[in-house]
């Protein structure tokens, strides 16, 4: 299976101002490498405003994404944050969820990508793995870690 996780789509220990900044940062390598259209970024930010994706797991995670039409090639961008950033809670926009790990999903066909989506869900339910991701000093560590679950 061609994995959607790539070492050069993982950014570590980043500083951002807010959740929208985090989405834009996560989208950067996707845009540069031709995975998404330019409009993806604005659409993902807009969707985050309406349907926020923060999850209050032991280490907070956000799963921003947007419609398939903005995705050219499927992939997942990962950003770990140096500072905790507040996302609104999924299903509960009034809830403030401190987030340190962002998985930006550029997905067209969720049925086909069910395996990787389920892997991400398995990972975010595992506190130990979340700690390892948050504390990773280089992208390769996260890449290798996720691949052990695939």
């Amino acid at each position: 299976m061609d994995s959607l996780i790539h070492e050069n789509l993982i950014q570590i220990n980043c500083l951002v101002n807010d959740q929208f900044d985090a989405i834009a940062l996560a989208a950067k390598p996707l845009l540069r490498q031709g995975y998404i259209t330019e409009d993806f970024i604005e659409a993902a930010i807009e969707r985050e405003r309406t349907f926020p994706t923060g999850l209050p797991t032991k280490i907070g995670v956000a799963l921003p994404h947007t419609e398939a039409k903005y995705v050219l090639r499927e992939s997942i961008s990962i950003v770990t944050l140096k500072n905790t950033i507040v996302f609104a809670g999924m299903g509960n926009p009034k809830e403030s969820v401190p987030v340190q790990i962002v998985f930006l999903l550029a997905i067209k066909d969720p049925e086909k990508q069910l395996g990787i989506l389920q892997t991400i869900v398995t990972i975010i339910q595992n506190e130990k793995v979340l700690h390892k991701i948050k504390d990773a000093k280089e992208p390769k560590t996260i890449y290798n870690l996720i691949n052990t679950f695939l």
Partner: peptide
């Protein structure tokens, strides 16, 4: 139901 019926609802439905 989810925002775009794309990622989270697929995982939840299965």
């Amino acid at each position: 139901a989810c925002g775009t019926a794309l990622a989270t609802s697929t995982v939840v439905a299965r």
